[in-house]
Write a protein that binds this DNA or RNA. Structure first.
Lengths: 272, 272
DNA sequence: GATCCGTCTGCATGATTGTGCGTAGTTACG
DNA sequence: CGTAACTACGCACAATCATGCAGACGGATC
């Protein structure tokens, strides 16, 4: 047999390859195939999940959440995002023109916007534009260009050109991370460029982030905390972190408490 | 039968995909198809509904309210539009770049496009772009500009400028009317302008229309019949009208018959 | 060469999870 | 208002899982 004695690392990278190829792996199958016990496989999978290389599910594993598309993310934590969205609404003045960045939290904000304010909303995310069409009180402007599958939005050169025509009263940034030192950050270079460009053209900049993005720093910087006018956080955001932000001079608004559900565990990866 | 052992997460994301594709799922059908009990499906649906991934209804589930954006029209005749969409798919060559115009029929086409063709799809309708994001085999290009609430798409000067960058292999027009003399027509001037502009830049032009648009002429002309390469009509389109189109030199394809059925009551007639 | 030490592995155990089934309650529809 | 389809809930069972422990293996040290 070719695969009887594999080093630990080899086995894991083989699992990883198999995962990418098939889109899923089953613990029992892997054990039989690699000639080790299911226990060992489970240990591998657990370890890989902790490293973000896969998502653990009953019976095996699936590709990591990082590879999940935009629409898959919209389904998670909806209640929290809705609560955040409701807290953002008061910041949107009647008659104003705002830019609503991509992101699942911002999609929730789009849905929460009332119909009685005669707003103009520009967005680079088709899903947000589509959600806004039903709202009779909102004029929608779509930023064009190639759509990035991960973010579900346009963020390239074309989008930047389109955005040049805007000078929004308010920019609601979608943040991949919000960190006391790093400020607002994003997962990709182009995305960060675009966000920064729009933010700097706006009269005010606001972001609403769920707890899992708090104190996270993604690789690319969008804007420093000092350029951010307001942050909307969850009701149960970690107090210590909130204080750090406040100390940095950031104005903070907390969302109202959501009715706690008996949480029937949604699918996340292990966030310790 | 084909897939007996799906991991939990897979089953749910499969249901999610099916939901996006068909606009609804039926618990009993899913159970039979996935080889699990209805109970399990119901549990899945309940869980997904709690996560905001679907809306639970008696007998099955529907997409979350977000996807009902165009609800007035998207919701009507879905069966017929799906059938039309399936008939259009063969005209979309692998590797080609197409323009997919706005309209609820074209949204059905977007959902029907397979993932294995490496397509580039440009569209002026955010709802279509949003629907396509899930398709891993498709690069999406969004035409920007202010979104017209009636059509749910960009069609103004900005959109025209954006479209100038395109030279599609195939243009799938959304028609407000298809008439033997008037050709393809639209309800608004700007819309017609835009459609014509894109159609004239395309190698081939195709349109798929439901019966209610057959032999209808809207106020503004898009292109003459002679400029249209192909029309996809319903299986039960009026024969006399179809002959008129054929006599005008238009190539016609008829969609397959749909087994029209309501959401429930699928018990007896097993000839699906 | 003998011994120690850290890591990897497999096994046993008790806990957890997913599923199907029975039963009783609810809903749509004629 | 009755019926059939659909649904929720609790239970039982099997599969899967996490954890602790012991043995195997390799490298380092004496």
């Amino acid at each position: 047999m070719s695969v009887l004695d594999l080093l630990l690392g080899e086995r894991q990278s083989l699992i990883e390859k198999r995962l990418a190829l098939h889109g899923r792996v089953i613990a029992a199958d892997l054990a039989a195939e690699l000639g080790v016990s299911e226990d060992t496989i489970r240990r591998d999978l657990r370890e890989m999940a902790a490293a973000g290389l896969c998502r653990r599910v009953y019976g095996g594993a699936l590709p990591p959440a990082a590879e999940t598309t935009f629409s898959e993310r919209t389904g998670t934590n909806t209640e929290r995002k809705d609560a955040l969205a409701r807290a953002v609404v008061p910041f949107v003045a009647a008659g104003s023109a705002i830019f609503l960045d991509s992101g699942s939290t911002n999609l929730a904000i789009a849905r929460a916007l009332p119909a009685d304010r005669q707003l103009t909303v520009a967005t680079n995310a088709p899903a947000i534009a589509a959600a806004l069409i039903d709202n009779a009180g909102i004029d929608v402007i779509q930023i064009g260009g190639p759509i990035d599958r991960k973010t579900g939005a346009a963020a390239g050169a074309k989008a930047l050109l389109d955005a040049e025509a805007l000078r929004p009263d308010l920019c609601i940034l979608g943040a991949c991370g919000l960190h006391p030192d790093a400020g607002v950050t994003a997962f990709s270079f182009e995305e960060a460029e675009f966000k920064r460009f729009v933010a700097l053209r706006s009269q005010a900049v606001l972001t609403a982030v769920t707890n899992d993005k708090l104190a996270m720093a993604a690789p690319y910087s969008v804007v420093a905390l000092s350029r951010l006018d307001h942050a909307v956080l969850e009701a149960d955001a970690d107090g210590r972190e909130v204080e750090e932000f406040a100390a940095a001079g950031l104005r903070i608004t907390r969302a109202a408490l959501t009715a706690a559900r008996p949480v029937r565990r949604t699918r996340n990866n292990a966030t310790s």
